[in-house]
Nucleic acid binder design. Structure first.
Lengths: 103, 103
DNA sequence: CCATAAGGTCAAATAAATTTGACTTATTTA
DNA sequence: TAAATAAGTCAAATTTATTTGACCTTATGG
């Protein structure tokens, strides 16, 4: 969903701001997969054809737009990072699920 | 929203199929503008920065995915074409409106 | 000590989307 | 009759997105 990549951010409509946050080849799929928190390598394994560079970029984008957040798990040795949806992320996930239901 | 452009169509998930139908820089905006039926030149005037080639391509894409249909108006002289949302188009427009409401 | 895994980054190459320019056909207004 | 408008098409140029390859750090297993 290449939305409007030329306008400065303030000029974007509300809809464009939301759409930019879910733009990208794998972005919607990642949001659907984050039904529960996942590690980088879990996502890498579960998403067909993705590569670590694209995954990394997409996760950074989602964090920037506050749809996901990192969780640093120290309890386990070795410590590791998990990604999970924020409240906003859950709202968007809900709408994506509704989209799936459109015939 | 560049979704998955590499997979053959059958392999796409339901969500990807919907997202592909609204993919494009101006596509979501066009769907919002089609609250009532519009002519090519109306859309061209109302959408900032679009050009006729991109508009043409987007309208063809939307027709292919059956989100909009053409209406040939013969009553007026000269006859002209209007574009309007289909039922499926209205469903998607509803979800896009909901997206706008996400803070 | 060496290899492997997790979780990345950066730049270059490639692929895909968008824009620009030239052209068309059918009406219509001056 | 000449110019203008509506509604486009096509190919080339440009811009953006995605992929590939090389590299890095910290930690664990053998």
């Amino acid at each position: 969903m290449a939305v409007s990549r030329k306008k400065p951010c303030e000029q974007l409509t509300k809809l464009e701001k939301v759409l930019i946050s879910i733009d990208g080849r794998f972005t919607p799929l990642i949001i659907l997969l984050l039904k529960d928190s996942q590690r980088f390598s879990d996502l890498l394994r579960r998403i067909p054809d993705i590569n670590k560079q694209s995954l990394s970029k997409t996760l950074r984008q989602l964090m920037k737009h506050e749809l996901i957040k990192q969780n640093i798990i120290k309890e386990t040795a070795p410590q590791h990072i998990e990604y999970e949806l924020t409240e906003k992320g859950w709202k968007i996930r809900g709408l994506l699920k509704q989209m799936e239901e459109i015939l």
